[in-house]
Lab assay of single mutants.
Amino acid sequence: MQRVNMIMAESPGLITICLLGYLLSAECTVFLDHENANKILNRPKRYNSGKLEEFVQGNLERECMEEKCSFEEAREVFENTERTTEFWKQYVDGDQCESNPCLNGGSCKDDINSYECWCPFGFEGKNCELDVTCNIKNGRCEQFCKNSADNKVVCSCTEGYRLAENQKSCEPAVPFPCGRVSVSQTSKLTRAETVFPDVDYVNSTEAETILDNITQSTQSFNDFTRVVGGEDAKPGQFPWQVVLNGKVDAFCGGSIVNEKWIVTAAHCVETGVKITVVAGEHNIEETEHTEQKRNVIRIIPHHNYNAAINKYNHDIALLELDEPLVLNSYVTPICIADKEYTNIFLKFGSGYVSGWGRVFHKGRSALVLQYLRVPLVDRATCLRSTKFTIYNNMFCAGFHEGGRDSCQGDSGGPHVTEVEGTSFLTGIISWGEECAMKGKYGIYTKVSRYVNWIKEKTKLT
């Protein structure tokens, strides 16, 4: 034993070699072989497995989906700052455009905790909710729209109204504003409101030439003092309507412009014939205590009207009353817009006519005020429907199939267009061939041609 100890002390290297040989010859039971080890760690190889990531292109799944990435790591994937920024906006807080917040056709661009709407022409605001041009839906104005110097929408209202708090709607500024039905039992019968379409306001006024200088022999019209197929109006439903009495009662109609003036057809009036105007009328054979009678003290036909040349060209006249009318729910003026808007309103496509005229061709006159909704007829169809001249200051309205029309005794009465609950004068009943005849239409004086003249002559002093 002493000898062994001496050998170990003198030859430590020998001992180490012996131990190493023993270990190498022993069977290893701690580690699995290569094949079995792979069965336990069965993990798919990654895209760049075996390579240094710093030297390969980034992978979106590896960089940002398996674990949260930084902007720089995302930049490695896209290799483009702009594309990385677009991805980053949604990656950080989701897609803010998912709810489609942009209105009126706006395009949404996502941002971090926010979004941006790219608005089409005519709109602005956070969600493109603000109209900035009158060309689109009248700028959301209830009545009139004008573009300011910086191309912003400025709404306005006709006389007797003021802008509401929203700067879009119009509200009454006087007790009985024009064009409004205020009798409670008839307010439910107000005709369907007309909503502004998209309009090209630059070209809204037709490029028409008034044929002022045409000389033409007097034409022989049949029954051209021209509501057939209409309905009984309720008291106060058309408070701007008046009836004219002269040699015979209810020979023509008219509309209240203001307390002192009536507008009617020029062919209705004769110099030297006494005319009485009755406002607030409903049943011409009954006294309903809503009527107001006034005498006409002055007749002003349009300066281009000449019955000797043509009885229905420039067929418009103004009547001055001896005493002002007292405005109330049964006696209310009709609204008159400017030339541009009167023309736009007419193009809405349908209007209402009213009167006490004959209820059928050569038949009896109506006792109760009649009204009828009539569609506008395109000019080409209008011209083809008659052998008589249709001037540019006239328009056609009615039904091709016949059966409904204005008729004798309705002449001078109103053709009105309702705009968001307020009625505007767009025409004056003038003439036609018979009444409600198939293929024939009622012919009306186009008020847009005469609004400046009306307003100039009827100013209240």
Rank of each mutant, 00 (worst) to 15 (best):
P177N: 01
E286Y: 10
R298W: 03
Y22W: 14
K168D: 03
T332G: 04
N310R: 06
C382W: 02
K347N: 12
V228Y: 08
T16L: 14
N113Y: 07
C134I: 03
V153S: 13
A149Y: 11
S411D: 15
E340V: 13
E61M: 07
C178Y: 00
D249A: 09
Y312W: 11
L325A: 00
C382A: 02
I7V: 14
K457H: 15
N258A: 04
F221L: 14
V269N: 01
V331K: 00
I454M: 05
I284S: 08
T85E: 09
F399Q: 11
S169C: 04
F31Q: 15
E285T: 10
Q96D: 15
M437G: 12
I334N: 00
E61G: 10
N36P: 15
A192E: 11
I297A: 08
N127H: 11
F55L: 15
N310Q: 07
C108A: 00
G94S: 11
N328M: 01
K455N: 07
D150K: 09
I344N: 09
Q370S: 11
R162N: 11
C97F: 00
V419A: 05
V228R: 13
G253Y: 05
I443D: 01
F78P: 15
V419N: 05
E288C: 04
E66A: 06
V374L: 04
G253L: 09
E124T: 04
Y305S: 02
F238L: 07
E124Q: 06
K89T: 12
C108Y: 02
I300N: 02
P120A: 08
F399E: 14
W88L: 15
S448P: 02
N203L: 09
F55E: 15
S217R: 07
L425G: 00
R180C: 03
N5M: 12
R294Q: 02
S430D: 02
V326E: 10
P324R: 05
S350W: 15
D410V: 13
F221W: 13
L319M: 14
N213L: 06
R62M: 10
K260C: 03
E72Y: 06
A279T: 03
R46K: 11
G254W: 00
S217G: 05
C117M: 00
V377S: 03
G280A: 03
Q96R: 15
F55N: 15
G179Q: 01
H289V: 13
Y47T: 14
K68P: 08
G58E: 05
L425V: 01
D410M: 15
L20P: 02
I15K: 07
V181D: 05
C178S: 01
D95N: 13
S148H: 09
W240P: 00
T209Q: 12
C157W: 01
I15W: 08
D249P: 07
G246W: 05
V447A: 08
T461K: 08
N147E: 10
E270K: 13
N343P: 02
D33N: 07
L60N: 15
C170K: 02
T287W: 12
E86P: 14
T461E: 12
W356P: 03
A317G: 03
C396T: 01
V331S: 03
T158F: 03
P172L: 04
F395Q: 01
V195P: 10
W118L: 02
G125N: 00
A149C: 05
F424Q: 00
Q143Y: 02
M8A: 14
K109C: 02
N42I: 10
Y115F: 09
N306C: 04
V183S: 12
E66P: 06
Q185R: 12
L425I: 04
L20C: 06
C268K: 00
E54H: 10
C102G: 00
T290H: 15
P12M: 15
L163W: 02
M8V: 06
T461G: 07
L244A: 02
G442R: 09
V92P: 08
A317L: 02
S329Q: 06
I429C: 06
S49T: 14
F399H: 12
P301S: 08
T209Y: 09
E401Q: 11
E456I: 07
L189W: 10
R379S: 11
V4W: 09
G398H: 03
N166T: 03
F399V: 14
V416K: 01
T287I: 12
G50V: 07
F31W: 10
E420Y: 10
I262W: 00
E259N: 06
A207W: 12
A279F: 02
N5K: 14
V242Q: 00
D110P: 14
T271W: 08
H400Q: 15
R379H: 12
I309V: 14
N104G: 02
G349D: 14
M8P: 11
D223I: 11
E231D: 09
G357V: 14
S448Y: 03
S365C: 04
N393I: 02
E66W: 04
K126M: 06
C102N: 00
K89I: 06
L321P: 00
T332P: 00
G412V: 06
C18P: 02
V56P: 15
C382I: 03
K51N: 13
